[in-house]
Amino acid sequence: MKRIQVLALLFAWVPGLAMACSCAIVRGGLQELVDRSPIVAVVRITSAERVPDPEHGAGRNAVRAKFSLVENLKGDAADISGLSASDGSCGLPVTIGSDYLVFAKGQGELASLDFCSFARRLDESEDKRQDRQVLAIRRYVSQGVVISTCDNWLGISPPPGSDTERCAPQP
């Protein structure tokens, strides 16, 4: 109960923390996200540090993390210089030793660990949705098996007119 009261006070006194995360819709779902991402990988956080993040406002911080590669699903994760998560409402919690599914540009840039980049911590889901995401991506990249838009892979509602009512249940 005290934790909830502290969080409520924090949000009341620091309005920037109460802002909601607003992300672009990926109409083609997980397959479109894979298609437009040069690098898709599963990585394990090996170290992390808090650093100033003036890009997101004065006094803001970010977490910069190093990683080891667990699985290259598409592209070459060696082209990612590290991982970054903002302290804002869109940033994912960074846990050393945890595995994350990341979608990245590469070219020596940092990959984002945030909701808008659709990065996911893989071991946080009881229903193993993220594990099924990795399997679907692996099958799509290696065998060309189309990724169904019926399943809510990205955790957002499907766009209007996507004919999800005709979708068969996913195993």
Rank of each mutant, 00 (worst) to 15 (best):
I156R: 10
L17Q: 09
Q143F: 10
G88P: 01
L113S: 06
I147G: 09
A62Q: 07
E165V: 14
F103Q: 01
V94N: 00
P52R: 14
F11M: 13
P158K: 09
S22M: 14
L10V: 04
D131P: 09
S86R: 02
G29K: 03
G144L: 06
C23Y: 06
P159G: 07
S86F: 04
S81I: 07
Q107F: 09
S37G: 03
P54G: 08
V146R: 10
I25H: 15
D114P: 06
G155C: 09
S37V: 06
A58C: 05
Q107L: 09
G155N: 11
G97K: 02
G161L: 01
V145A: 10
K2V: 06
A77M: 08
P93Q: 13
P158Q: 11
F103W: 03
F67W: 12
Q143L: 14
D35G: 05
Q31R: 10
R166M: 10
E71N: 08
R36Q: 13
S98K: 13
A78Q: 15
G29V: 02
R60N: 13
T95V: 15
C23G: 00
S37M: 05
A24R: 14
S81G: 04
R138C: 00
I80V: 12
V63W: 06
S117R: 07
L122Q: 11
D87I: 08
